[in-house]
Computed example of a mutant assay.
Amino acid sequence: MSWMRVSPEGLLLGVVLDGLLGDPRRGHPVAGFGRAANWVEGKVYGDSRGRGVLFVGVVVGAVGVVGVVVERVAEGRVLRAVSTAVVTWAVLGGTSLGREGLLMARALEAEEMEAARGRLSHLCARDPKGLGSAELARATVESVAENTSDAAVAPLLWGAVAGIPGLMVYRAVNTLDAMVGYRNSRYERFGWAAARLDDGANWVPARVTGVLTALVGGADAWRVLRRDGGNHPSPNAGRCEAAFAGALGVRLGGTNSYGGEVERRPGMGDGRAPEVRDIRRAVALSKRVAFAAAGVAVAVAWWRR
């Protein structure tokens, strides 16, 4: 069958476009998807898991159908390569992740604490109120580590094995988790399906991220990944954060606040607490991991051709 086979040339070109352009400031397709998903949520919301399953099924199913249509219409090597490149660029977020990390680093280096706290929402849902430089640095390093998988490794792997539909469906699933996958009074039950589906979609990519981090980051990354990767409450984030902790020689984990709820996470790594300078190191490591993931994804796509 010719469909659900991604163009390796298109996948590579999409990675290059993301590296050169990052996310568009206006008219981003993912932002448009978010608005559409909000509209559907308003129509089907109910405080139950069943309603959440319906919501996810409708939204993700619609994206999957669009992805299949795009891939079926994109006949021919050149058109498929161009279509794959555009979709890959649209769903990748590695370059923008790095930019956000560097913006945080600059704010902290300039001791602009209010600006730094205001930027934290671009990286994670952690409550920035009252956080000092050290806690903001730790939050940023942890977010860069976790989102290296979500923003770069996972979409590339899904694109390599499931083509344009895989790229689009993965980004839809991950976006829905960011929208409704919270454990609060509104989404505890309604967001359950989105959160569990996202866990499943990221299970393999998170572990691949950990392995790639160890490959480019050294033996300590592998040692800490194996020892501490399962300590995190998330089945996936801990694999990325543990590997980054080992590679950077820092200790991650601790007390975090999300919407007034305090969460205490076990430590990962043996080193010192992260410092502001470690943000730049984490961004550089994330780029190396994303580059390695692109190589793996292109190789898989070529093999599948």
Rank of each mutant, 00 (worst) to 15 (best):
G159I: 03
G159W: 01
H122I: 00
N184E: 06
G295T: 03
A115K: 12
A301H: 07
A160S: 12
A162H: 04
V300A: 09
K287G: 13
Y182T: 07
D23M: 08
N174G: 09
L252W: 03
V40L: 04
G98P: 07
T140Q: 07
G76W: 02
M4A: 15
D270A: 15
E9R: 12
F33A: 02
V59N: 09
V208T: 11
Y182F: 10
R207S: 10
L92Q: 04
E9W: 14
V58G: 04
R281P: 09
F291K: 11
G269M: 07
R304K: 14
V69G: 06
R189W: 05
R288G: 10
G295F: 00
H122G: 13
G267E: 13
V216W: 08
H28Y: 05
G32N: 00
V262F: 05
M104S: 12
W302A: 14
G249R: 01
A221G: 15
E114T: 14
S234N: 06
G217E: 06
L176C: 07
A110T: 07
G271V: 08
E109P: 03
E41V: 04
G27L: 09
P233H: 10
L131W: 00
E146I: 08
W203P: 05
A125D: 11
F33D: 01
G42P: 09
F33R: 00
E275L: 14
V86R: 00
G163W: 01
A110K: 11
R106C: 12
W203A: 15
A292C: 05
Y45L: 08
V16I: 14
A115P: 10
Y170S: 06
A301D: 05
A193K: 06
V180Y: 00
G14P: 09
G118L: 03
T175N: 08
T209W: 00
G200I: 14
P165S: 04
G32Y: 05
R26K: 14
T209Q: 02
V40H: 00
A125Y: 06
T255Y: 01
R272C: 13
G271Y: 08
C240G: 14
G217Y: 02
L156G: 12
V283C: 12
M4P: 12
N174D: 09
G98R: 06
D23P: 11
P128H: 12
G50S: 09
G210L: 04
V153W: 01
R264K: 11
A243K: 01
S257H: 03
D199G: 15
A151H: 01
E75G: 15
R264Y: 02
R265F: 03
E9L: 15
M268S: 11
G229P: 11
A282I: 13
R272H: 15
G271L: 10
G130R: 05
W89E: 00
E71P: 08
G46K: 14
P233V: 13
A294R: 03
C240L: 02
A194Q: 00
E241W: 02
V276R: 08
L11K: 08
V73H: 05
R227V: 11
A116Q: 06
V173Y: 05
R80Q: 12
V169M: 09
A242N: 04
S48E: 02
V53N: 13
D177P: 15
V296N: 04
T175V: 12
R25L: 13
V224T: 12
A282G: 10
L123R: 02
R264Q: 09
S7W: 01
G259W: 00
G19I: 03
V63F: 10
I164S: 08
W158L: 03
V53Y: 14
R281F: 08
V59P: 13
V68G: 05
S7I: 06
R196Q: 04
G267Y: 05
